[in-house]
Amino acid sequence: VPLGLGLGYKELNCDDPETEQAALVAVDYINSNLLQGYKHTLNQIDKVKVWSRRPMGEVFEIEIDTLETVCHVLDPTPSANCSVRQLRQHAVEGDCDFRVLKQNGQFSVLSAKCDSSPDSAEDVRKVCPSCPLLAPLNDTKVVHAVDAALAAFNARNNGSYFQLVEVSRAQLVPLPASTYVEFAVAATDCVAQDVTDPAVCNMLAEKQYGFCKSTLTEKLGGEDVAVTCTVFPTQPVLPQPQPDGINIPSSMVSSATPESPPDAVVVGPLV
């Protein structure tokens, strides 16, 4: 639609290469500024309007749908290499409104607003009647499973004591009765084997994060804990550019998005 119809904007095709460029910049922005949870990937462009901007440039007002990937935001893996969380694993989508400026051929984010929500239980049941649904992160079984997994990891760890950063997702499995959890950890200034009071341990100035997956299986008279953690390389903290009027803490963000990530170290599985 040409300019000059009284609306002040033009409508591009949602699959237009220029629209896709703006959408990909928006998704990169999401992944660079998420402080918790998982990286997202573009799923669909819902709407786009392009406004002329004086004295120069264009503003893309764009609505996009995203999907959660399996990569935690602290994982330095480029989001292009992260697979999408499947419906059977209880997928999560994001709905976002962005304003992206294109000036001198360069895109930059002016504003962003996103909400994320898990797929409905009914939809998960349609594709997999027996698949476990996402559980509340403050569920007592979830909290216990994370505590047990972290203790098991630190007990076998000869280096730094790792403390919990966040519980990222959890599922209660009915058969065999078990709790599956995923959580982020960070290295502290304590030595794992020497810790008596974890409360006195402090995260290192040069942050070193890890991401753990664990299953706690209930047994007669006890429980089994299996945990695998990937420890990411330390990353220097760099300031992040922010759009006008938005102030997002960046201390964790910069460590999650290096230009060329070194290899991570997988520790585990530990049983």
């Binding site: 409508e11 591009l12 990937t41 573009l42 799923n43 669909q44 819902d46 997928a91 989508e93 797929d119």
Partner: peptide, 27 residues
């Protein structure tokens, strides 16, 4: 739609520019 004899007339639904394609699956 009135067409001239021998002149092809576009048929079928109008292509909507938005929303765009789904890359993975729709929730």
């Amino acid at each position: 739609t009135v067409g001239q004899p021998g002149v092809a007339v576009a048929a079928g639904p109008v292509v909507r520019p938005c929303p765009g394609r789904i890359r993975h699956f729709k929730i």
